[in-house]
């Protein structure tokens, strides 16, 4: 039994560390700034970081296969710009939202196909995807486009009270991330698609010889990431009620950092979306602490995330080495 506990710890060490660091960071924040002790401060993490969580979930699947998707920020920005433009032209949200999701999925699918069929590095293909999508967003408009659609406004402003927690609320778009997370957990652990993702990340050659659909799964993973990017774009445009090519610049790197902080190995095969949630929450907590402080430069967020990510990579390789020896 002790052996099993040890193995459990070795296998879940990175995730447990991430969770511990989140609680520690949040606790410290609460001691420093009593305002952070309010329940609403916790729910604000979901309100403020909804798009990042959504991107992180898609990114987790990509990284689990051993790939990377740098296009997510571009697709997000393109989605905001395109949906703002379409809504200004009077298109119905009932048309715009599905259209955007199809566009994101199609972009991801295209990138996946290029990666798979032409055997090009995901890094370079998705970098091109990033340039393409952000470029297209600027083609649509060089300036920020505002959204006046009543449905969007209603979504943006409707507060949903949290049961049993007085005075705490979320907005409708901030529910998207957590719901997607549940779907992602199901996908990862209870479907053939999810298990194949893990198999490919561990050893693509093996996966192929085991007769698993490697190509289809890989293309699906990039399509999923594209879908998530568009979804994140919709959430983003609702909360800002605007669309602009400059939105969320560099968010792809934050998403990758969250995934890595969440214990997913960049080489693939190890990690899960729950870890990514905590990676996003840690990033959100650092931002909150800086906001409550008010005097520190917001760039400290990046420095904090950078240092933490480095520490996580160290911890991961430590666990990994220990596992190999056990």
């Amino acid at each position: 039994m002790a052996q099993r506990t040890k193995l459990f710890l070795l296998h879940h060490g990175p995730l447990l560390t991430t969770m511990a660091i989140f609680f520690l960071a949040y606790f410290i924040g609460g001691r420093l700034y009593p305002a952070m002790q309010k329940p609403q401060a916790f729910f604000n993490l979901f309100i403020n970081n909804g798009p990042l969580l959504i991107l992180g979930i898609g990114m987790t699947f990509v990284i689990l296969t051993g790939g990377i998707d740098l296009s997510v920020g571009g697709v997000l920005a393109l989605t905001t710009a395109a949906s703002a433009a379409l809504l200004q032209l009077g298109a119905s949200p009932a048309l715009v939202i599905p259209l955007m999701l199809v566009m994101g999925t199609a972009l991801g699918c295209t990138l996946g196909c290029i990666i798979h069929f032409f055997k090009v590095q995901p890094f370079i293909v998705t970098l091109m995807g990033l340039f393409f999508a952000r470029g297209m967003a600027y083609i649509i408009s060089l300036t920020s486009l505002s959204i006046n659609d009543p449905f969007y406004k209603q979504l943006a402003l409707t507060q949903i009270p949290i049961p049993f927690v007085p005075k705490a609320y979320l907005y409708i778009p901030s529910l998207v991330g957590p719901i997607l997370l549940l779907v992602a957990v199901y996908l990862a652990f209870f479907t053939r698609f999810g298990r194949t993702v893990y198999a490919i990340g561990n050893n693509e050659q093996s996966a192929r010889l085991m007769g698993l659909p490697v190509g289809r799964t890989r293309i699906l993973v990039y399509s999923l990431s594209g879908f998530c990017s568009a979804l994140a774009g919709i959430v983003f445009s609702i909360s800002l009620l605007a669309g602009y090519g400059q939105f969320a610049s560099g968010i792809e790197l934050d998403a990758i950092a969250s995934v890595v902080m969440g214990g997913t190995l960049l080489t693939g095969g190890v990690g899960n979306v729950i870890g990514t949630l905590f990676g996003v929450l840690i990033e959100g907590t650092i931002i909150s602490i800086l906001q409550y402080n008010g005097t520190l430069s917001s760039w400290w967020t990046r420095i904090g995330v950078g240092v933490l990510t480095l520490i996580f990579i160290g911890i991961q390789s430590l666990f990994y080495v220990r596992r190999k020896h056990s």
Binding site: Y186, F190, T191, R192, Q205, L212
Partner: peptide, 27 residues
């Protein structure tokens, strides 16, 4: 050995032919 060492023994045997119930893997 062409298997995936990160997955469980059971998965390595059954991967690609997992028994399913209502679409989800019947662990």
């Amino acid at each position: 050995v062409n298997l995936c060492t990160n997955l469980s023994v059971a998965e390595n045997i059954m991967l690609g032919r997992e028994p399913r119930r209502l679409g989800s893997i019947h662990w």
